[in-house]
Amino acid sequence: MKTILTVDDSPSIRQMLAYVLSSNGYHVIEAGDGEEGLLLAKEHQADLILTDQNMPKMDGIALIKALRGLPAYRHVPIMMLTTESSPALKQQGREAGATGWMVKPFDPEKLLEMLKKILP
């Protein structure tokens, strides 16, 4: 079973993601901000990470930079899942090492299709 780490400061978004992902056979770990996400990523090897951008303590791009510095996460797919869609911020995400960018509100079907492409 593939493990997905979701990082979002909104409990309702995390619950929705957990529902969609776990009912499709993924094991889900949840973090409420970038710092907690980094901590959990070190404790549990995730196969993919879905992270929000605007969060307290550590934002999504900072989290990606920190994760890409860890050998265990150098090649793990990390998708941004955020309301932000500005080209400048996307460029920052790309430079930080994000695999892709998905704008909220997410469509559960599109999210699952995307996961199938990344996690066959």
Binding site: T82, E84, S85, L89, M102, V103, K104, D107, K110
Partner: peptide, 18 residues
């Protein structure tokens, strides 16, 4: 203040791979 939301319309969002 960190910008909380960068969304101006109500459609579901786009997706792209880098």
């Amino acid at each position: 203040l960190v910008k909380p939301v960068g969304k101006a319309h109500l459609g579901t969002g786009d997706m792209e791979f880098f």
